[in-house]
Design a protein around this nucleic acid. Structure first.
Lengths: 211, 211
DNA sequence: CAATACCAAGCAAGCGCTTGGTTTGTAAAG
DNA sequence: CTTTACAAACCAAGCGCTTGCTTGGTATTG
């Protein structure tokens, strides 16, 4: 049996709620642990270079035993992506409710996305970006539905800022530019490099001249 | 024999010069054709998912015959990357000489990078971004040296604009944000979608509020 | 006593790459 | 203008290995 983790310091109420609804696997359980290790390996070596034997070894079981939890290797990749989007969408929706002005909301969106990229779910977020092609077309379609909910959060705020004349570029173009800019941080940003995520968010705001 | 292409409408003088110096393979020759097909396949399916049999079939030879041109599959990937950087660095250096102000230079850099990403070398540029991990550490180091020359072109212009107070964010952060934003266009921008590359460049300038 | 989680073993397919031999292009020698 | 020589380009076959996944059986658990 994949050894369970008894206590976890980062038990956010958002995560707990999603686990209760069975939308995200409990990170302390067997399935959750495997997905976490899978995200790490997929990011580190890429999906194709990661073998089912690698995945099994990471959680201390035999490669064949993997297929009691997932039918195929691709199903593991899809699960990593789906659960990551679900969690991050929920986190962002809560941040939106807490922010007052549209400027605050944009800052919150940027900070949230940076946190998701460089923090706990960072490996999974990177997988979402870089291993997209490894999903079959059918699986891609399923994940895309979830992504659109997430994207709409951004577009609502950017549309509003554009209507106020604060933002000059077209919202949908700007969102795509920000998607690239923020997700790229995964390749270079290191938390211990003297720059906090708040600093980095400030830099983005300064680049867009929104301060 | 890999059939040679007799005439090519896009013979830029820059490309010709690099071919003459043996820094870039002639796209009409056997090696050049193979690299072009390799870039296309690597982008379409990813390096790992592309087999040497796929590569060989794309140029109409047997898989074993590939190894008369390249010692390993990885050598093909590295060659795609190296030649792409060499060509685009040369193109950009020429664009820098033609531009007067720093603002013009930044616009030229953005447009050049967008052109390289969405144009002829687009597939190779995408490979450069997305297949980086598939290179061995040794090969990565070799390619990095060439990349740094390219990056310095950007930093020189951004440093200058920052000194003038036109740009508020830190140049090296801003360059990395732009790297992500521009390279991401490869996933969504389509030339036939009613938006030219010049339009797209204007959008980036508008986003940075540099107009 | 069923269900769940696992192991040990291995299969069929596909992988990068090698081998030995044949064709093709080029150019000097007769 | 032919002959001879040779290297580069290529083919057909397949080797050794790794891959995702299957199978049949065994502990563990409620």
């Amino acid at each position: 049996m994949i050894e369970p983790v008894t206590s976890n310091a980062n038990e956010s109420p958002i995560l707990k709620a999603l686990v209760a609804e069975n939308l995200v696997s409990d990170p302390a359980g067997a399935r959750g642990r495997l997905l976490k290790e899978a995200a790490r390996l997929f990011r580190e070596k890429g999906y194709e270079r990661t073998t089912v034997r690698d995945l099994a070894a990471a959680v201390g079981i035999q490669s064949g035993s993997l297929f009691h939890h997932f039918r195929t290797k691709e199903e593991i990749l899809k699960a990593v992506m789906v659960e990551t989007i679900r969690l991050n969408t929920a986190i962002m929706q809560q941040a939106m409710e807490a922010a007052d002005t549209d400027r605050d909301k944009l800052r919150a969106l940027i900070l949230c996305e940076l946190e998701s990229i460089t923090g706990q779910t960072g490996e999974a977020m990177a997988v979402l970006v870089y291993e997209w092609r490894s999903l079959s077309t059918a699986a891609q379609a399923g994940v895309l539905v979830l992504r659109e909910i997430y994207e709409q959060l951004w577009l609502d705020v950017l549309d509003s800022l554009a209507a106020q004349g604060v933002v000059k570029a077209e919202p949908f173009v700007m969102r795509r530019m920000l998607t690239g800019a923020l997700s790229w941080t995964v390749t270079w940003y290191r938390p211990n490099g003297g720059m906090t995520l708040s600093d980095l968010t400030d830099q983005v705001i300064a680049m867009l001249r929104l301060d």
